[in-house]
């Protein structure tokens, strides 16, 4: 294993193109090893990271941790079951962003769970994609899920297909599939923009049960209005932990909660300082947050 890693490291450095070195020389005008302006940022990330990491280890010790009920995630099985009963397809949209977006990665995790359910129930799963890299990843996710469900022969690669990168071209394509094939369950998980309501309303018109999840805050009202269940912001990121129930994953959720408590405390303390001690506020602003 170690030898393989060593070979990989040597290969990575060998393959690094010459322009990277040039870029290094050009952009290395700022010779500092650490940017002090980002100190508050690094402290915040380390603190939250520490708690997430600590609770992951803590959860592995076997102690049961409580997670509140997320209705939208509980409804996944119901939605897939309904589609199976009706003999119709399930449609899953991974959003409009590429794989470099964390929302897309969170969405792909949920897709794994949905694909496993459709494999178990032997219903048809449609995954139209807006990005070709997402399509390739989604194909692998579904293939793996069908394999885990013991039904690899039911996986249809052509059902996970690329439509177009264009925002409204994609919407037109997905709406067309909805109107023609009338899936009984629609999932919208990931990054969405102005097209969210067009998708959700078309799905509503076809009578599908709809579950959405996004951290794009301006699109949340549209999903709430037009879908049966909506995962709001962080619930999308928590979905994989919630669905898998793995101790390591659940532990990370607890760490997240502590992180939020820290932010809440920081907001309250800052509000008190700004309101009642303006001089202390000025001092902190000019020393720690001078950037």
């Amino acid at each position: 294993m170690l030898n393989r890693l060593l070979v990989l490291i040597i290969f990575a450095f060998w393959a690094m193109p010459a322009w990277a070195q040039e870029a290094a020389e050009e952009t290395a005008k700022d010779v500092r090893w650490f940017n002090p302006d980002r100190l508050p940022n690094v402290i915040g990330v380390l603190l939250i990271g520490f708690f997430v990491f600590w609770y992951i280890i803590h959860a592995q010790s076997g102690k049961k941790l409580f997670i509140r009920r997320i209705a939208g995630l509980n409804a996944i099985d119901e939605a897939v079951g309904r589609a199976t009963e009706m003999g119709k397809s399930v449609m899953y949209i991974t959003g409009l962003a590429d794989v470099d977006d964390i929302q897309t990665l969170a969405s792909l995790s949920i897709l794994g769970h949905v694909a496993k359910k459709t494999a178990e129930y032997e219903s048809n799963l449609l995954v139209p994609c807006c990005r070709s890299v997402v399509m390739t990843t989604a194909q692998e996710v579904c293939k793996e899920a069908y394999l885990r469900a013991g039904r690899p022969e039911n996986f249809k690669r052509e059902n996970v297909r690329y439509l177009t990168d264009d925002q409204f071209g994609f919407v037109a394509g997905v709406d067309g599939i909805m109107v023609r094939e009338k899936p009984a369950a629609n999932f919208y998980m990931g990054t969405f923009y102005a097209e969210s309501l067009i998708l959700a309303e078309t799905g509503n018109a076809t009578g599908a049960i709809q579950i959405a999840g996004t951290a794009s805050s301006s699109q949340l009202p549209f999903f709430v209005a037009a879908c049966d269940y909506t995962l709001i912001g962080e619930e999308l990121y928590a979905a994989s932990a919630y669905l898998s129930g793995e101790p390591k994953q659940v532990g990370s959720l607890k760490g997240q909660d502590v992180g939020k408590a820290l932010i809440l405390a920081a907001i309250i303390i800052s509000t008190i300082i700004i309101t009642f001690f303006p001089q202390t506020h000025e001092f902190i602003k000019n020393t720690i947050f001078k950037s």
Binding site: Y193, A194, S216, S217, S218, Q219
Partner: peptide
């Protein structure tokens, strides 16, 4: 920006 994104 578009009116839909303005609150953000």
């Amino acid at each position: 920006c578009t009116a839909v994104s303005a609150p953000e």
